[in-house]
Design a binder for these strands. Structure first.
Lengths: 205, 205, 205, 205
DNA sequence: GATGAATGAGCGTTCATTCAT
DNA sequence: AATGAATGAACGCTCATTCAT
């Protein structure tokens, strides 16, 4: 009534719930339809198929999330603070959206279509937030020039993703994600080693 | 004849081939059986189901791989070299075993059983190789004491995993994995920032 | 504007095209609507359903065709010429209206409704053209009195129908339909045997 | 137990029953399976799909029927008697196998696969029985040399087929098929006209 | 141990038709 | 009359797994 695309939104919302609860493969389209209060066939007016629902959830939530991450980055002035802000935003999202996180970390990867045919732009866009941070830092001379932004963005994303997945899998979470965020930021910014000691020269004097 | 578990081995070998070629969900048990030269039913004398074949591949290849990674680590004397050796070993494996890498990076994750019920020890064992490196480095004072080994191992593994997945997905690989390995090692050892400059103080003099 | 039932006509025209191209079962009502430039629902203002479109095509084209066949028959003076004219008209129609022929010979028969519930008058009317020719011939003494017109009309129609179907199926038509028409007329008028020889008495003297 | 292909036969038998009762499109594979006392999936061990069941029924019953028709033809000595025997055999089959006749005359034609992709040999073989009769008659000089056997076989088959279809459709059969057979044989052998009268010369004296 | 014929649960998707506007 | 978004029934087929031999 009040919203355009009312049904589309309702379908997506219902799908997140069902996917998180049953898993992608066990989720029945009929159940999503029921949850959304539409007929089974109606779903196919808005989405090409079950995989596309999943991918749409990803794309659309990512769009929102990218905007938020972007804002968080902008609110920091220095590169290291920006990267730290990014990392925090990433893990905060996981912590604050457990259902979506379940879908992103676990269910999404079970869709062949997503893994092997995903051509959407949001993931790339998200990764580029990191890539651009690195590049910017290099221009400022804060980040080493030999760092390959295209690799660094994958490494940082991969680290966050893995930690996020563990957090989702271990429903009773041993570690605090906020603390983890800080540690991960430290690792990437300063490395795991004691800076005083030149690693090149070795640990011994 | 000459090998104990001849059939078991043949089944696993055939499965790797089929999984890599068709993907886990499109792989048919009958096709694996045919590739292994056994009857469909025979497979169930050795494995509980399709997922268990996949998981067995993982467990057994990981066992070999862990041994190799362990040896590589041992062959280095300093912690940083050990970590660097580990990272190289990981990405070398990916590079040198494209079929297995495809299975590990992509197909394995489509198995609900693996994702949600995996209880094998090999992944943990593998991650602990990293964890122990970190701990050892901390005991030596080379690695900062505030690093949480349980988190660091996930972060390092995640970074490698993500890079490996990209490498598998982009069949024509833009970047050289050996070079990537060095960069990743640098990132984790030294961080991405210029060490000389205290990040706390900011980028400007 | 200018035509009464403009839309109805456009729907039928579009339907012939789509049915001939895709076959009755693969033809989508939506596609017919699109072809006719009307909304899906509009079709149901003019026809009860998909089958009825098909049947309407048949009925209406048959009406035209019956008129033509009738005229052709009338233009001949003798019964045998009339029958020959009829047969020619039938096969000429097939030859000159390939799309309609495809629909009549192949698609129409896939409609359960048409096969099992058809109650229209046109087919009967058409068959009666033959039946009446036979009867007329009998009154004139030209056609044997023991011929059952109701059976003969089916036999003649069946022969023409089968030949027409073959012609439609074999897109590259081996045989010439005009020549076939003459042969069929001969067969029914004179029989396949050499008339000189009494068949009852056998072929040998 | 006692028969090889026990299941295959049971499936075909059940299918004839269900197809005749419900029609091809309304027949459910599950119902055929139930009727045959096998699991749904078992059907697909013997047939590629629903259409193939239908086509197999046709091919296999035709094989039997061709043998019988062949024998009937052989038992007659003269060409005209042979053709008459053939026609009788055809319509006797229809009369004596109402369920099969229903499937052959009505349901078979609703299968797109059968109509448009049928490549089996039985129909051709059957038609050739007639074609060869014609040819043989021509060699004996009993049948006019200008008759095209390839066309005559279609005409005769078409006539029989149409009459058979009517007989099946009108469950309460007005006319006797044995009598119809004789009439049809007469029509094709002697033509519908009074032989005494030269048609060329016209009907009037 | 080995076989492979048999099982049968499971479901995404289409599309003719309807009906509120 | 016309629209077109919404409906929802309907089902063939696959294939992992079992089990009698």
């Amino acid at each position: 009534m009040s919203f355009k695309n009312d049904k589309r939104t309702r379908i997506l919302r219902a799908a997140v719930k069902v996917f998180a609860q049953k898993g992608f493969y066990n989720a029945k389209v009929a159940e999503i339809a029921k949850g959304a209060g539409v007929a089974d066939g109606t779903i196919y007016l808005y989405f090409k198929g079950k995989d596309e629902i999943l991918i749409s959830i990803f794309e659309e939530e990512m769009a929102k999330f990218i905007a938020k991450a972007h804002a968080q980055i902008e609110s920091a002035s220095q590169i290291d603070h920006k990267l730290r802000a990014f990392i925090h935003t990433h893990l905060d999202f996981v912590k604050n959206n457990p259902k979506l996180a379940q879908v992103f970390q676990l269910e999404l990867r079970q869709s062949n279509k997503f893994i092997k045919e995903y051509t959407g732009s949001k993931l790339k866009e998200y990764l580029n937030l990191i890539g651009e941070l690195i590049s910017e830092g290099q221009r400022q001379g804060v980040i080493r020039a030999d760092i390959h932004p295209g690799l660094a963005k994958r490494a940082i994303f991969g680290a966050l993703d893995e930690v996020a997945t563990q957090w989702v899998l271990l429903k009773r979470n041993k570690y605090d994600l906020r603390q983890s965020a800080d540690q991960i930021a430290d690792m990437f910014l300063r490395g795991v080693t004691n800076n005083q000691t030149s690693m090149k020269g070795g640990a011994s004097p």
